[in-house]
């Protein structure tokens, strides 16, 4: 039991560490951001977890097309679902964070904030996986559904990466570290994340990703159980 689920415990420990250290440790004092810099441990981790989960989903879609094992399709769709959940959470928390930093302190209008390249990238990712689930919903044949949606998953995910790389070069960015963003950027710069913050940030990413994987495995097990019962009846 314990040997098998060490990573679940690890996820718990890391997240407890994230909350305790994330709230209590010293962080760099920056204007406009103030204490909200701590959102890095929560909001940014949502995006990291989302991308990792989508990556896992992509991997299983490829695996599905290589052997046509039904299991792999269940894996791909479950990871995509949990990834979308993290994406939505990331979007919501991002809106909260934006509304106290860029919008009020910088006098940016909401419309210009929403055109921010990272947000466009995130919106594209969410739209893609929305389309993925609509596509899945439109099939009745299980094998066909698995095959076609795997193809779309692979295609869309492969197109997502160049998009995320290109869009910031087209639209001016408010986000930190983006080429083309002006200096005097109120958000975090890579140099602002000092060693202390890294000590919390990376464990936080791992912790959030692990709990995402845990929830996805639960979904997978339920789906497989349902299928088994269906086959016996």
């Amino acid at each position: 039991m314990v040997q098998k689920s060490w990573w679940k415990i690890l996820s718990f420990v890391l997240l407890v560490y994230t909350i305790v250290a994330g709230f209590l440790l010293e962080v760099p004092r920056l204007f406009i951001l103030n204490e909200t810099i701590r959102n890095l441990y929560f909001h940014v981790c949502m995006w990291f977890a989302m991308m990792i989960l989508f990556g896992v989903s992509f991997f299983y879609s490829i695996k599905y097309l290589r052997g046509f094992h039904y299991r792999n399709d269940v894996f791909a769709s479950s990871f995509a679902a949990v990834g979308s959940l993290f994406g939505v959470l990331g979007y919501l928390t991002g809106v909260l964070w934006v509304s106290v930093t860029w919008v009020t302190d910088q006098g940016q209008s909401l419309a210009s904030v929403l055109k921010e390249p990272k947000l466009i990238g995130a919106a594209i990712a969410l739209l893609i996986y929305g389309a993925y689930f609509v596509l899945r919903g439109s099939f009745t044949d299980i094998d066909k559904r698995a095959r076609i949606s795997a193809v779309y998953n692979i295609f869309a995910f492969a197109m997502l990466f160049p998009s995320i790389w290109i869009i910031p070069r087209l639209v001016g960015s408010l986000h930190p570290g983006a080429p083309g963003s002006d200096s005097g950027n109120p958000a975090l710069d890579r140099n602002d994340m000092d060693a202390g913050m890294r000590m919390v940030f990376y464990p936080a990413v791992i912790g959030w990703t692990l709990i995402g994987i845990w929830i996805a495995t639960l979904k997978i097990r339920v789906a497989l159980l349902k299928d088994k019962i269906l086959m016996h009846v």
Partner: peptide, 20 residues
């Protein structure tokens, strides 16, 4: 075409991919 669907599905699938 495999999903036996109309042009609406094409738009849904294609727009996020074509946007960049």
């Amino acid at each position: 075409a495999k999903a036996q669907q109309n042009a609406a599905l094409i738009a849904i699938l294609g727009f996020p991919v074509i946007l960049p």
